[in-house]
Design a protein around this nucleic acid. Structure first.
Length: 421
RNA sequence: GCCGGGGUGGGGUAGUGGUUAUCCUAGGGGCCUGUGGAGCCCCCGUCCCGGGUUCAAUUCUCGGUCCCGGCCCCA
C-alpha cells in the first residue's frame, strides 16, 4: 500500500481547529477595519528576484525557489511585505496618502520545522505607506497592540526600540562596516559576551562599547528614556522622537510596553521605530509580531516613501491562545426523516432554515431512528427533529431538545419562527 | 546544515528474533423494524521506508524519511 504523506513542515487542519483559526482571523480583520485599513491580496508566488532584491541572494537557500516550465525563476513567497511594496510601487502609488493596507496569506520557507515554525505558515500584516510621521508609527503600534488585546492574549510583551539610537552608538564604536552588521546581529541575539570582546578584537572604543551594552540592557517603561539619555550625553534627535511617540501612545491608552533598544530587527531597511511582541509561553519561537518604520519602496524601483508596518505570525498567535479553548459552535437542528415522503418534506424545511442563517443538517445514511439520535448526540446538535408519516399527516414535527430530552410539537408553518427565537 | 528524543490500526497504547501482534478509543452494523447518551456482540483497520545480519526481522543493525524539542537562521 502506498503511504501518502504530507510534505514536511505542512499541516492539515480539522474542522474544530479551522473554526478557531477563523475566529482569530475574523478578530484581526475586524480590528484592522476599525482602524480603516483596507485589505489587499497578492500572488502566492512571485519572481524570485523580488525576494532577492529585498533580502539578498542568500535568501534563495531558505525559500522554495524553482524554475517554472517557461524557465522563469519563481519562488513561493516567504513573507508578504515585499509583494505588497511591489504592488504599491507598480500600481497603488497614485492612491491618496496615507495608504493603510492589511493582508493575510500563507507563506513558505525552506527551514527546519520546530515549535511555532513550519514550512507553510500564515502571516497577517499591515502597513501605512506615505505618512512619514510618529503619528503613523503610533497608529501601527496601536493596531498591533489592540489586535493582540482583542484576541485575549494578555500574557504578551510589546518591546519598542529605535534604530536611530542604536545606530548612533554603533557608528561611534569606530568599527568596520562588516563589523557593524555583526554587532547588530549580536545585539539582536542578546549576545553580550561577544559584545564585550569588541574592544579587543575589532578595535571598538571601550567607553562606547560599555555604554552600548548598558543601553541594550535597559529594561523598563517610559522612565527608561531618562537612563538612555544619560548614556547618550545630550539630547539626541531619535530619543526626542521616541519620547514624542510614547506620549502619543499614552493617548491610545498604551502604557504597558517595554523600551528595548536591543530590538535590531536584523534588517537595514528599517529606519526608526522598531518593535516586537513576544508571547513568553511559546518557547524558542516566541515572537508573534515584528515591525517598524522602514523605507523599502526604492528597493523595488519606486520613489522613496516612508512606511510603517508589522506582521503577525498567525500560527504563533494560535499557539499562544490555545490554552483557553472556546466552545465550538453547535448544529442548531438535525433532521431525521423516517420515510421517503418525510425526507422530501424535510429537505424543504432544511432549506428554509438554512436560508435564514440557522444551521441545519439531515440524515444522509438512512439510519434507524435510534442510531440517528446517537449521531445527533455525538456531533452535539442542539435539537433534533423526527418526521414520519404520522407527522406528515398532522403537519407537525416534534422538536426534541437534545440536552433535556423534552419534545415539543410544532406546526410546519411555525417551525422557522420557533428557531428564530 | 547540526544535536537529542521518538515512529505499532484514524487517535492512544502493550508486546515479541518464530503459529492468528495486545488492549482502549473512534468509525460502521446488530441486540432495539419511530426516539440519543448505558450495556453486550460483530465488523473495519496496524508494526514508517530501504539495505544488512539471520533459516526467520515489527523486534537487532545501518541509512533514509517524518514527527517532537533545541541550535543555526529568522526576510
Amino acid at each position: 500500500m502506498t503511504d501518502f504523506q504530507r510534505p514536511r513542515g505542512t499541516r492539515d487542519f480539522p474542522p474544530e481547529e479551522m473554526e478557531q483559526r477563523r475566529i482569530v482571523e475574523d478578530g484581526l480583520r475586524k480590528v484592522a477595519r476599525s482602524f480603516n485599513f483596507g485589505e489587499v491580496m497578492t500572488p502566492t508566488f512571485e519572481n524570485t528576484e523580488l525576494f532577492v532584491a529585498k533580502s539578498g541572494p542568500g535568501i534563495i537557500d531558505e525559500i522554495y525557489a524553482f524554475k517554472d516550465k517557461g524557465d522563469r525563476e519563481i519562488s513561493l513567497r516567504p513573507e508578504l511585505t515585499a509583494a505588497v511594496m511591489r504592488y504599491y510601487v507598480k500600481e497603488l502609488h497614485t492612491r491618496p496618502k496615507p495608504l493603510k493596507l492589511y493582508y493575510m496569506g500563507n507563506c513558505f520557507r525552506y527551514e527546519r520545522p520546530q515549535k511555532g515554525r513550519y514550512r507553510e505558515f500564515w502571516q497577517f500584516g499591515a502597513e501605512i505607506i506615505g505618512a512619514p510621521s510618529l503619528d503613523a508609527d503610533a497608529e501601527v503600534l496601536a493596531l498591533a497592540y489592540y489586535s493582540v488585546k482583542n484576541l485575549g492574549l494578555n500574557n504578551t510583551v510589546m518591546r519598542i526600540g529605535h534604530l536611530g539610537v542604536l545606530n548612533k552608538f554603533i557608528e561611534e564604536l569606530g568599527v568596520s562596516e562588516s563589523m557593524k552588521v555583526e554587532v547588530r546581529r549580536m545585539i539582536d541575539k542578546r549576545d553580550f559576551e561577544s559584545l564585550r570582546t569588541l574592544p579587543d578584537g575589532a578595535g571598538a572604543k571601550q567607553d562606547v562599547t560599555n555604554r552600548l551594552i548598558e543601553l541594550v540592557s535597559l529594561d523598563g517603561g517610559s522612565e527608561t528614556l531618562e537612563k538612555a539619555k544619560k548614556l547618550m550625553d545630550g539630547d539626541d534627535i531619535s530619543l526626542k522622537e521616541l519620547k514624542k511617540l510614547l506620549n502619543i501612545l499614552e493617548k491610545y491608552g498604551i502604557t504597558d510596553y517595554k523600551l528595548d533598544f536591543g530590538v535590531a530587527r536584523g534588517l537595514d531597511y528599517y529606519t526608526g521605530m522598531v518593535f516586537e511582541i513576544d508571547a513568553p509561553n511559546l518557547g524558542a519561537e516566541k515572537q508573534i509580531c515584528g515591525g517598524g518604520a522602514y523605507s523599502l519602496s526604492e528597493t523595488f524601483g519606486g520613489q522613496p516613501i516612508s512606511s510603517t508596518g508589522f506582521a503577525f505570525g498567525f500560527d504563533r498567535l494560535m499557539l499562544a491562545r490555545s490554552q483557553d479553548e472556546e466552545e465550538l459552535s453547535k448544529l442548531d437542528v438535525y433532521f431525521i426523516p423516517i420515510s421517503d415522503d418525510a425526507r422530501m418534506k424535510c429537505l424543504e424545511m432544511v432549506t428554509e432554515i438554512r436560508n435564514n442563517g440557522i444551521s441545519a443538517d439531515i440524515d444522509l445514511l438512512g439510519r434507524k431512528v435510534g442510531k440517528a439520535f446517537g449521531y445527533a448526540d455525538t456531533i452535539g446538535a442542539k435539537t433534533a427533529i423526527v418526521i414520519g408519516d404520522k407527522e406528515l399527516a398532522e403537519e407537525k414535527v416534534m422538536v426534541k431538545d437534545m440536552a433535556t430530552g423534552d419534545q415539543t410539537p410544532i406546526n410546519f408553518s411555525e417551525l422557522l419562527k420557533h428557531y428564530q427565537n
